[in-house]
Design a protein around this nucleic acid. Structure first.
Length: 430
RNA sequence: GGAGACGUGGCCGAGUGGUCGAAGGCGCUCCCCUGCUAAGGGAGUAGACGACGUGAAAUCGUCUCGAGGGUUCGAAUCCCUUCGUCUCCGCCA
């Protein structure tokens, strides 16, 4: 949600920022609506002020017994009332029109975001590790002998349809261990607070973080109106919706392990094999609420938290600064972390970390007050995956594959696997 | 699912038709006293929007007592609808 005042003050800058995202200028339309709306408000308030003045006199007139004056004022008030009703109805309609428009406009990119059209223009800002030299032709995760029995797409399809999977045995255990490992790392070493949230939410929550109104088709909705969260960014960020936070309480840093649900509308035919792209998956999410001046540094901190997980798992990755054309709706700047997948012989996204500025805070009315200050300000919000558990499982399996069909597991995971460090070719932890 | 209660400013909490944007308390800000682990005294302290102005402010106006609608000259206060919260019973992981 954009600040109409900011647009009013500098429409050129607003349009220029939108242009970086490949959008045509919107300020003329916005300002026209805004002016119409304000003129209507002024007219309505003037009429209201007249009516209020009359209301004060009417009681006195009746008290004095001045019936002519009483009737004159009553008539005046009736006129004003009708006038106000009409003006208000128009103002309300114009206001909603403006709000609806503002709600569908994406966030403005930070100045330090590379300008570009699509994925090809993203800029690598960091790289860690080197793809393992396996000495044989690597397989994709779902073709690994060690995984065959533990990752069952056919049975899942029978029960639920495509883009679902059933994990079992050692594979299921590794998946669970990954989530535990991530949560423990974030809470004990990165200073995040563990949170467990609902996965069913109301419209307002989805509106607050920006999934609604524009991207309804990407999420699932229950028959009685709840939405299934596409990420716990929705619930974690909305913790501070409609609140006034004391300055000393910032920053707040949350992490949660949750199920995520995505319809993957529009991605038919993409990543159809394996568990890279599912309708239901698990993710450990990070969310930070900060003061405005701290949010940009927080983005780098959060990026490091996500990268740290991969480093401990001995996985090679690179970090990309998304270009203006590739960023998500609510982001001012986004870092995608891509992990090396030997089976695909490429880097694939495993985390996306974004700073949203006050974009979401405006939508959900999340504010804070500085010590001694009179006016509240909107907080800044950030979110990032830390990490996508299913994709991390893929990475661990593919990177650890060995010539004999077994998978060597990262040492950081061993304590979470009862001391076992190998998934044998038969799919057993050993 | 059945029965009932409640929804007020950053927080708690008064307030059942007008003089209430709203007592009191807490918290916070400033000042005084004291003097230094504490306490006492005084003053101030809601938000949104609009106008003016534009570095912030000040000023004026409108709206807001969960939301929407109604009654009334006039509503936080009465009526209706709706959303939310809580309690008890039932059911249940």
């Amino acid at each position: 949600m954009h600040d109409i005042r900011a647009i009013r003050e500098n429409p050129a800058a607003f349009d220029a920022a939108l242009a970086k995202r490949g959008l045509s200028p919107l300020s003329p339309k916005i300002l026209a609506l805004d002016e119409a709306r304000r003129a209507r408000i002024t007219a309505s308030e003037t009429a209201q002020a007249d009516a209020n003045a009359a209301a004060k006199q009417v009681g006195q007139a009746k008290h004095k017994g001045d019936l002519d004056e009483f009737e004159r004022l009553r008539a005046l008030m009736a006129d004003k009332k009708a006038e106000i009703a009409e003006l208000d109805a128009q103002a309300k309609a114009e206001d909603e029109k403006l709000r609806d428009l503002l709600l569908t406009i994406p966030n403005l990119p930070h100045d330090d975001v590379p300008v570009g059209k699509d994925e090809a223009d993203n800029v690598e800002i960091h790289r860690h590790g080197t793809p393992p030299n396996l000495g044989f032709a690597p397989k994709e995760h779902f073709d690994l002998p060690a995984v065959q029995g533990g990752m069952d797409f056919e049975t899942a399809a029978k029960i639920s349809g495509s883009r679902f999977v059933i994990l079992s045995g050692g594979v299921a255990r590794i998946h669970r261990a990954l989530a535990q490992f991530m949560l423990d790392t974030h809470t004990t070493e990165n200073g995040l607070t563990e949170v467990n949230t609902p996965v069913l939410v109301r419209d307002e929550a989805m509106l607050g973080t920006g999934q609604l109104p524009k991207f309804a088709e990407d999420s699932y909705q229950t028959t009685n109106g709840w939405w299934l969260i596409p990420t716990s960014e929705v619930t974690l960020t909305n913790i501070v919706s409609d609140t006034m936070i004391d300055e000393g309480y910032l920053p707040r840093r949350y992490t949660a392990h949750s199920l995520c649900f995505r319809s993957e509308a529009g991605s038919a035919g993409r990543d159809t094999s394996g568990m890279l792209r599912q309708h239901q998956f698990e993710k450990v999410e990070m969310v930070s609420i900060t003061k405005p001046e701290d949010s940009r540094a927080e983005l780098d901190r959060m990026t490091k938290c996500a990268e740290g997980i991969l480093e401990r798992l001995d996985l090679a990755y690179r970090t990309m600064a998304l270009c203006t054309g590739d960023m998500g709706f609510g982001a001012q700047r986004t870092h995608d972390i891509e992990v090396w997948l030997p089976g695909q012989n490429t880097y694939r996204e495993i985390s996306s970390v974004s700073v949203c500025g006050d974009f979401q805070a405006r939508r959900m009315n999340a504010r804070f007050k500085r010590d001694g200050a009179k006016k509240p300000e909107f907080v800044h919000t950030l979110n990032g995956s830390g990490l996508a558990v299913g994709r991390c499982l893929i990475a661990v399996l593919e990177n650890g594959q060995q010539a004999d069909g077994s998978v060597k597991l990262p040492s950081a995971l061993v304590p979470y696997l009862g001391g076992r460090s190998i998934l044998t070719a038969e799919g057993v932890l050993a």
